[in-house]
């Protein structure tokens, strides 16, 4: 899957990060926002704090371009969705541009209605999203996170994979971004998670 080369540089690009409260989506968006600003773009990142963080469905909008206005991304506008969980990928799919890319961690976290049996967790979501026309890039990112030393590093492993969508010469900026945004005592572990995430294709064979 190639990076964003050839796209109109001036046009605002939209990336959504979706997941379950507590999965570390805020750190991921902080890192991504930092990298994009460092690359000279105008950037807006919109987060949700408070009530919905308690295990609810969470979404962060990251927008970049020459001049960004709206802090939020609307239905049909996202170039890329990074989903920390399958069901959340499916929930936000209609925010993706038709034919846009969706990076999915195949991990499943059952929501309360599924746990209590009042709803069913749908099967084969990556395949169904493909059928709906999305470019689906789905892997188990728990694997690189655990290899790096913590299941909690799923967020940075996903960012590692996302970094491969951008030009290769951004690498040093991503590394600096990790240094600036990840607490020092977790830096080495997250550097590994980022690296393993980048190479997920080789790991998951």
């Amino acid at each position: 899957m190639g990076h964003l080369e050839g796209d109109n540089e001036m046009e605002t690009k939209n990336i959504m990060i979706v997941g379950v409260g507590g999965q570390g989506t805020l750190l991921a968006s902080k890192l991504l926002g930092w990298v994009l600003m460092e690359k000279g773009y105008d950037v807006k990142v919109s987060e949700v704090h408070g009530m919905s963080q308690r295990g609810g469905s969470v979404v962060t909008y990251v927008r970049y371009g020459e001049r960004v206005y709206s802090p939020v991304i609307d239905r049909g506008e996202a170039d890329i969705i990074v989903a920390f969980e399958q069901l959340e990928a499916a929930r936000w799919l209609d925010y993706l541009k038709v034919g846009g890319r969706i990076l999915v961690n195949t991990q499943k976290t059952e929501p309360m209605p599924v746990i209590t049996g009042s709803a069913v967790y749908p099967e084969d979501l990556p395949e169904k999203m493909r059928s709906a026309g999305a470019q689906v890039d789905a892997w188990d990112f728990l694997l690189p996170a655990r290899m790096a030393g913590s299941a909690k590093a799923v967020n940075i492993a996903l960012m590692g994979r996302l970094s491969t969508y951008f030009p290769e010469d951004w690498e040093s900026v991503w590394q600096e971004g990790l240094e600036k945004n990840v607490p020092e005592r977790f830096l080495e572990m997250n550097r590994k998670a980022f690296e393993f995430g980048k190479k997920i294709q080789e790991l998951d064979k």
């Binding site: 239905r75 309360m112 069913v120 749908p122």
Partner: peptide
């Protein structure tokens, strides 16, 4: 408004807990 596609599937809610 931009075109968008939903899954036909029923997506269970994920309320905060």
């Amino acid at each position: 408004v931009p075109e968008s596609r939903k899954l036909e599937e029923e997506i269970p809610m994920r309320p905060p807990v």
